[in-house]
Nucleic acid binder design. Structure first.
Length: 579
DNA sequence: CGCAATATCG
């Protein structure tokens, strides 16, 4: 009776609440065989992927003892389709542990998942199982293996499997081409392409992308024009290629002349505009798009966040959550939003996401999100929380270390910052420009001049050229130590145009050490570079005043007032939040 | 079922 009722219900579309009730009944009455129907319902009825669905699905799979092969396989494909490869793999190993034989479908899906999450051992293990289950002659399974080895860059094994295949199809060949292109072997890819009898769009597109990736847009274009058939991906590959080599006008030309654009085309263009700071053009394209998905929102939010517009980023996040828009955010959205919070110093919103929202949406933590949170907590002074997350990272990369180093540097834990840097070096992780900013900040705060020099000079050993920001930090530490002439000489020796911050650092140092002569020089440069800021004038006025030159000080203050520049010096980003 | 174009953290 109950079984009948549930079976009927599951044939209709149901609300989340109804599903929960049904699941409850199944649990209470021990109707485990109905889980299969429930899983099937969840996977098929919901055309759009949503975090709650995935979460719920996980829950059911967890409660049911072990789903049958078909249920597990369809759930695997569901998760895989939506990028949740870990979950798909968990299901596959679930099959293993309960002694069930996977289907060829499950194997193909698992191989894909292994490739995507770079699960090298997993793929090799599955390769072994292929023999055990006698799937050797299956084109799909074997192509899956080729695809796996190609994706993880093991072209030796990819070739081995490929050569021994009794039957090959387009996908097998395309996987090989893709693998060669990924490992940078254009010649071998060209060889495959030439030997292929029946090429399809994917083959052509792969080659176009391959040329675009190495910056050879002439060849990419030639191939693009030769193509017997083009689809959106072909056009997108061209747009992406031009964006990559920063030829935005050409990218836009292709974008505009596409017969039909999709979300990816738009995301690619937005990414291009974002990289060169053209938020306005990016936003225009975004607004033009009729139907927007979460990926498009992610791209636009990231564009704002990356270009110093965290407020707009949060506004857009808010917009996507509005009932009339109602787009589910994903991990990437949250990582970007948290970074915006961190720029704003908005600890409360950021930690709300961490402590409540993620859980509510069924979004699981990953290292990207952790790193974003580390930065947030560190920037907002909760260094202990940052450390806790830092220790939970599965893999500590440059970004994570840098966030932590910078966080310690600005929270009075300079020695720990230095220790973290050493630890990072021992782990053979290459520091980058931002890492050095963090280290220099720490050294700066404790006034370690010689160590700063050492750090600054060691940058070129990593192929890094100091940016004006690094010069600023050097000027600051020298200035603090009263070595003003030396700081001035360092600026004069800069290979690039110093920005206002560099001269500002010198000016500040002159003000603490009451050096009128250098202070005037520094202030002059600051005025030239940033005429609309009053902070510099006030600093110089202070220097005059402390040197007893009251008239000069008065004259300067008067002119600042007349220009209407009455902002208080030292006004920070917090003011921009309010505006 | 499997291959091509996009996007997250300092």
């Amino acid at each position: 009776m109950l079984v009948q009722k549930i079976t009927t219900l599951l044939n209709h579309s149901l609300t989340a609440k109804q599903l929960k009730q049904i699941h409850g009944s199944i649990l209470v009455h021990g109707l485990n065989h109905l889980d299969r129907l429930l899983i099937h319902h969840l996977i098929t009825s919901q055309s759009d992927y949503s975090q709650p669905t995935a979460h719920y699905l996980r829950l059911i799979l967890h409660h049911s003892k072990q789903p049958d092969v078909d249920s597990a396989t369809s759930a695997m494909r569901y998760f895989s389709k939506h990028g949740n490869f870990q979950q798909a793999l968990a299901l596959y190993s679930g099959l293993q542990t309960s002694g069930l034989s996977p289907s060829t479908f499950a194997v193909a899906s698992a191989l894909k998942a292994c490739a995507r999450v770079c699960e090298l051992n997993g793929g090799v293990m599955i390769h072994g199982q292929v023999f055990k289950y006698g799937f050797c002659g299956d084109v799909y399974v074997e192509t899956g293996l080729v695809g796996f080895y190609a994706k993880v860059g093991d072209m030796g094994n990819a070739c081995k499997v490929f050569d021994e295949m009794s039957e090959r199809n387009v996908v097998s060949w395309n996987s090989m081409i893709d693998g060669f292109l990924r490992s940078g072997d254009l010649v071998m890819a060209e060889g495959c392409f030439a030997r292929m009898l029946d090429k399809d769009v994917v083959s052509w597109n792969s080659m176009v992308t391959g040329y675009a990736r190495v910056g050879d847009m002439e060849k990419a274009l030639r191939l693009f024009e030769e193509m017997p058939e083009r689809n959106q991906t072909s056009w997108n590959a061209m747009v992406s290629g031009y964006v990559e080599c920063e030829k935005l006008e050409l990218a836009r030309k292709f974008y505009d002349s596409m017969p039909q654009r999709n979300t990816i085309s738009c995301i690619t263009m937005i990414g291009g505009y974002s990289k060169c700071g053209d938020i306005v053009s990016a936003r225009e394209l975004f607004d033009e798009m009729g139907r927007k998905d979460h990926l498009l929102y992610n791209a636009m939010i990231a564009c704002h966040a990356k270009n110093g517009r965290p407020k707009e980023a949060l506004q857009l996040f808010d917009e996507m959550l509005q009932p009339n828009v109602n787009i589910q955010p994903d991990k990437m959205t949250l990582a970007t939003v948290i970074s915006a919070c961190s720029q704003l110093g908005d600890l409360s919103f950021g930690s709300w996401i961490h402590e409540l929202y993620m859980n509510q949406m069924g979004i699981t933590m990953d290292d990207h999100l952790r790193t974003a949170l580390i930065d947030l907590y560190a920037k907002c002074g909760s260094i202990d929380k940052a450390f806790k997350l830092f220790h939970k990272l599965h893999k500590k990369d440059v970004v994570a270390y840098t966030a932590m180093i910078l966080g310690c540097a600005i929270n009075g834990k300079e020695q720990i910052a230095i220790k973290l840097f050493d630890e990072m070096m021992e782990s053979k992780i290459r520091p980058n420009l931002v890492t050095f900013s963090g280290l220099l900040t720490a050294l700066n705060h404790v006034g370690m001049v010689e160590e700063s020099y050492h750090c600054f000079n060691s940058m070129k050993r990593y192929g890094l050229a100091p940016t004006p920001d690094h010069y600023s930090l050097m000027v600051e530490v020298l200035g603090r130590a009263g070595r003003l002439e030396e700081a001035h000489n360092l600026i004069k020796g800069m290979p690039m145009q110093p920005h206002a911050g560099v001269w500002g650092a010198l000016l500040l140092a002159c003000s603490t050490h009451n050096n009128v002569e250098l202070g005037e020089i520094a202030a002059k440069h600051c005025f030239e570079l940033e005429a609309d800021s009053s902070g510099y004038g006030s600093l110089l006025a202070n220097i005059y005043a402390s040197a007893g030159r009251w008239d000069d000080a008065k004259r300067l203050r008067k002119s600042i007032y007349e220009k209407g520049l009455v902002k208080v010096p030292g006004s920070s980003w917090m003011d921009h939040v309010q505006e």
